[in-house]
């Protein structure tokens, strides 16, 4: 492969987030037919319950902005959440973060983040801003804002 920094044909790396978490909810036999190497994959599978797409496709663009709704604790829905979903909620509690950033900070593949976000969205624990549909003609004022912002850096 040409681009060694960017492309790897490997199994996913062990997940920092999941490593320390108890896995008490899963019966151990569920994991038996996998060797050690498959561990992270099993964890990804369990986390997403095998789903690879969120219910609402297209909602979670790489730059869709995600924010935990205020006072998550009032909902009581968080009991059923995966540790990774708690991590996501913590990350975007104070400030919206893009789907891409959530993937990077949790060390999870974006496809997995999308599934986890789909659950959080259905439970009403996050709100989402989709990116501006630029179509062919981005708004002139927006472009001026971008140029001014760049000049001011």
């Amino acid at each position: 492969m040409s681009e060694s920094m960017s492309i790897e044909d490997t199994a996913p790396e062990p997940l920092a987030v999941s490593a320390a978490e108890p896995s008490g909810l899963r019966p151990p036999e569920e994991e038996r037919w996998f060797d050690d190497e498959a561990g992270p994959v099993v964890r990804l599978f369990s986390m997403t319950r095998g789903r690879v797409r969120p219910a609402e496709e297209g909602l979670f663009d790489l730059i869709s902005l995600i924010r935990a709704v205020d006072q998550v604790e009032l909902f009581g829905a968080e009991h059923a959440l995966e540790p990774e979903q708690h991590a996501i909620l913590r990350l975007c509690r104070d400030e919206p973060l893009s789907v891409a950033e959530l993937g990077s900070y949790t060390d999870l593949p974006v496809s997995v983040v999308r599934v986890l976000l789909g659950d959080l969205h259905e439970t009403g624990l996050i709100s989402v801003i989709r990116p501006v549909p630029l179509a062919q003609l981005p708004d002139e004022r927006l472009l001026r804002d971008v140029i001014n912002g760049l000049r001011a850096l």
């Binding site: 996913p12 099993v42 690879v52 950033e101």
Partner: peptide, 23 residues
């Protein structure tokens, strides 16, 4: 969906990205 957990070997495409807060 059919790939499921049997797909032990996956190809990972990594993207570098950054963010600039403009205002």
């Amino acid at each position: 969906d059919t790939a499921g957990i049997e797909a032990k070997r996956t190809t990972t495409v990594a993207m570098d990205f950054g963010r600039i807060d403009l205002r």
